[in-house]
Simulated scan of single mutants.
Amino acid sequence: MPRCERLPGPGLAKVQNPPLLCRRRVELVTCSTGRLRALFDGADVLSEGSTRVEEGALVYYGSTSLLVALPPDAPPDPTLDRALALDPHLRLRALRVAQREATARAGGPLGPMHAEIRCGLARRAATTSFALTVDVTARVLLTTPKTARPSGA
């Protein structure tokens, strides 16, 4: 009969006396929606992409990059990068810009869109910017995909 192998690590132990109180400190960081919107409206936007016929349907593949220049009074805090990356309003705004750009390049309305967002700080010599890249895949909603011409990049 084969012997059961034990996983490495501590074995079972009985809890003696759990602590009566547990303390946890949490730091919450949020972005100012108004200032973020103003910065985002002045962002540099660069898009590329094209459509391909796949299984009788027209599918758009593309990428949109946004470069949001941060103001000089932005704190040189390491949490700034993470706070901006996790801000749902910023991500949604980037997604909407990417959808608008993809619709314009695809030559027709898009169906459900699959998007991946990457973001992080981009330090230049004089300024610090926040860079977002949105990769988009979506089916183009055309009634006759065979007559549609794929758009150029």
Rank of each mutant, 00 (worst) to 15 (best):
C4L: 12
E5W: 15
E5C: 10
R6E: 11
L7D: 13
P10G: 10
G11Q: 01
L12G: 01
V15F: 04
V15M: 00
Q16N: 13
N17H: 12
L20T: 07
L21Y: 15
L21N: 10
R23K: 14
R25H: 11
V26R: 15
L28H: 14
V29K: 14
V29A: 15
T30F: 14
T30R: 12
T33C: 09
T33Y: 11
G34F: 05
G34P: 07
L36H: 03
F40T: 02
F40Y: 01
F40R: 04
G42S: 08
G42K: 01
D44P: 02
V45S: 07
V45W: 07
E48Y: 08
G49T: 03
T51N: 06
E55Q: 04
E55L: 00
A57M: 12
S63F: 08
S65W: 07
L67N: 08
L67E: 11
V68L: 01
A69I: 04
P71K: 05
P71G: 07
P71Q: 08
P72V: 11
P72I: 11
P72H: 15
P75V: 13
P76G: 09
L92P: 08
L95C: 06
A98R: 02
R100N: 11
R100K: 08
E101N: 13
E101M: 11
T103K: 01
A104E: 07
G108P: 00
G108V: 01
G108R: 05
L110I: 01
L110N: 02
G111V: 06
P112T: 08
M113V: 15
A115Y: 04
E116G: 05
I117Q: 05
I117F: 00
R118V: 11
C119N: 13
G120W: 06
L121S: 03
A122K: 04
T127L: 03
T127S: 04
A131D: 15
T133W: 07
T137C: 12
T137D: 09
A138Y: 04
V140T: 09
L142S: 15
T143H: 12
K146G: 10
R149H: 13
P150S: 05
P150L: 01
G152S: 15
A153G: 11
